[in-house]
């Protein structure tokens, strides 16, 4: 039973990481209606930025801020260079998907050129382990869960209560109507992508903390697990993203204990395929989103 509780505890940490990246993906999907295949690589950029910042500063907080800023810049760049040129042209939407794949390839290989292919050791947070109920957490894991909760709650409150948040939701809901109402839809879309990058960059930093070492394919290997969490929860809403992240995160870590850790990604992928085939709106998606996401 101890193994099970440890797996659940570790699953919650994985879920916290996934929730950040998945919420970022949901924001992007909300305003652009495209799956961004470079999402994993934005995480990698965040992780490497944290690593680069750790050299001169030796502060975990500054590492996190560097990851968030680098993620925001990278996500904005992905939108401006890879998605907007095709979205505005009204071409086949697969063209934009192909361009994010090309972007993913370029980001990975630029990182490979700069940092090399060998694993780069990543700083960790030192601290004792603490018992919370039957679960055992390290300080690092508690920091990760706390950061994820604060960031996502902050995002949720911003979207729900502030003017800018309402404007972003209006653009996501009906782009043309929001423009008729005088909202600067283009700028709000850029802003949303940058904010999604903040979340994704922090997710990358957290991924670096849990992985302990960086390789240029770090985030890309996580891409489909993020998609799995997004799709299982119902892409496009924050609550669904949290729920999907929890299911996929727990599913992976529990499977790692009872099946084999070699196949934990397979569990996430099977959840992804099954959800797409059986209930493409996700467990939390309503009827309306079924129409919205049908191609």
């Amino acid at each position: 039973m101890t193994a099970f509780f440890n797996a659940v505890g570790f699953g919650v940490v994985t879920a916290a990481l996934l929730a950040l990246a998945t919420t970022g993906l949901s924001l992007q999907y909300g305003v652009s209606r495209l799956p961004n295949f470079a999402q994993g690589d934005i995480m990698t950029v965040g992780a490497y930025a944290a690593y680069a910042a750790n050299g001169p500063f030796h502060s975990i907080a500054i590492d996190g801020i560097a990851a968030a800023l680098a993620g925001a810049a990278m996500a904005w760049l992905v939108y401006m260079a890879l998605i907007r040129p095709f979205a505005s042209r009204g071409t086949n939407r697969l063209t934009a998907v192909v361009s994010t794949l090309a972007g993913s390839l370029i980001i990975q290989d630029v990182l490979l050129i700069i940092f090399g292919g060998n694993a780069t050791a990543f700083p960790t947070i030192q601290g004792a382990t603490e018992h919370i109920g039957p679960f055992l957490f390290t300080t690092e894991q508690l920091v990760i869960i706390g950061v994820a909760l604060v960031v996502i709650a902050g995002l949720h409150a911003t979207l729900k209560f502030t003017f800018i948040g309402k404007a972003v939701r209006a653009v996501a809901d009906h782009r043309d109507l929001s423009r008729v109402s005088g909202l600067p839809a283009g700028m709000l879309t850029q802003l949303t992508w940058a904010v999604s990058g903040v979340l994704t960059g922090i997710a990358g930093f957290v991924l670096g903390l849990t992985a302990g070492a960086l390789v240029p394919t770090l985030g890309f290997d996580y891409l489909l697990i993020i998609f799995a969490a997004a799709v299982v929860g119902g892409i496009g809403n924050v609550g669904g993203a949290l729920f999907g992240a929890l299911i996929v995160g727990l599913g992976m870590t529990v499977a790692a204990v009872y099946i084999s850790s070699d196949y934990k990604e397979v569990v996430a992928l099977i959840l992804l395929i099954a959800t797409i085939l059986i209930r493409p709106t996700g467990l939390f998606g309503g009827r309306s989103s079924a129409r919205r996401f049908a191609v």
Partner: peptide, 13 residues
């Protein structure tokens, strides 16, 4: 069941 970008995600999986 799927076409378009969801087909890309399924086949990559």
């Amino acid at each position: 069941r799927v076409t378009g970008d969801y087909f890309a995600i399924v086949t990559l999986s």
